[in-house]
Design a binder for these strands. Structure first.
Lengths: 145, 145
DNA sequence: TTAATAAAGGACATATTTATCCGTTATTAA
DNA sequence: TTAATAACGGATAAATATGTCCTTTATTAA
């Protein structure tokens, strides 16, 4: 569904959001370790998230990544997915036809649109804050086995 | 969402189903041309569909691919997707955690499960017959622009 | 029986995604 | 001011997905 890059990006964002709630800035190494993600690849993804103003970064000692507290409730999964995978997941035709649309629909068009809209809504409704709260309540986990 | 291979596989299957309704066996070339798919790559995908008993093939003059009339109503999109992309689209964790489950869920687990189930049902409910009928009625198209 | 035809199958080529490495730049604290 | 630290950015490597080519095998019709 999502690319690996996007999976790691979401994991990282959630971890950063959690730590930022206690004003703790986290390093690349911490993020990679705590989300079971490859270090160097995660670095690239974090750079992209920084450029897209989803997370903030600071160089040097005591540097690292953070998400301003007031921001976590406003960042939606859709923002992260968009920054990394683009909008193809919302827009792309199920059969890969470039010009598929309501006027000239592919055979899957309407059925697929329903599924995609379902996904789009979920991503647009879900905030980082909400996901990090689940984890702090012990209702979900960022490191599994 | 689907791999390119899967997109071409579904396109090809629908085209074969349509032609088979008039007892016409179609060649690789015809399929590729009429579904805007790369010829040689499509060949590989068709082989896979044949091995999975989704389509039938016959070598030699007047040979080609077909789907027995009585079968088209029984073949679901899920069968094609499964043969080509496997079941990861139904089963894989949204964040890519191998052991994510209800007992130890990732932060996206429940929300993602809803979306995935939605997709799964759609694929399991939709038959090739139904899709080919849509096309014959001029309600959808296999070649777009 | 032979020539022509079309799928099957293996080897190979290209593109994209995933992932690493390392020198550079910014920041901090001593 | 300097040494240490950690993100940034570019080059490169490895793995996977996409795609082609060519020989072999099965089938048909002449």
């Amino acid at each position: 569904m999502f690319s690996k890059a996007c999976e790691y990006g979401i994991r990282a964002s959630i971890f950063i959001a959690i730590k930022s709630r206690s004003d703790i800035r986290v390093s690349l190494k911490d993020i990679a370790r705590e989300t079971d993600s490859p270090v160097s690849f995660t670095a690239k993804i974090l750079q992209r998230l920084v450029k897209n103003n989803i997370i903030d970064s600071l160089k040097g000692p005591n540097g690292g990544f953070e998400i301003k507290k007031s921001k976590a409730g406003k960042i939606r999964l859709s923002h992260i997915v968009n920054a990394i995978d683009g909008d193809s997941i919302y827009k792309k035709c199920g059969l890969g036809f470039r010009n598929c649309n309501n006027k000239k629909p592919c055979p899957l068009h309407y059925k697929f649109t329903v599924v995609r809209e379902n996904l789009r809504k979920m991503l647009e409704e879900t905030t980082l804050l909400e996901l990090s709260e689940d984890i702090e309540r012990g209702q979900s986990f960022l490191k599994i086995n």
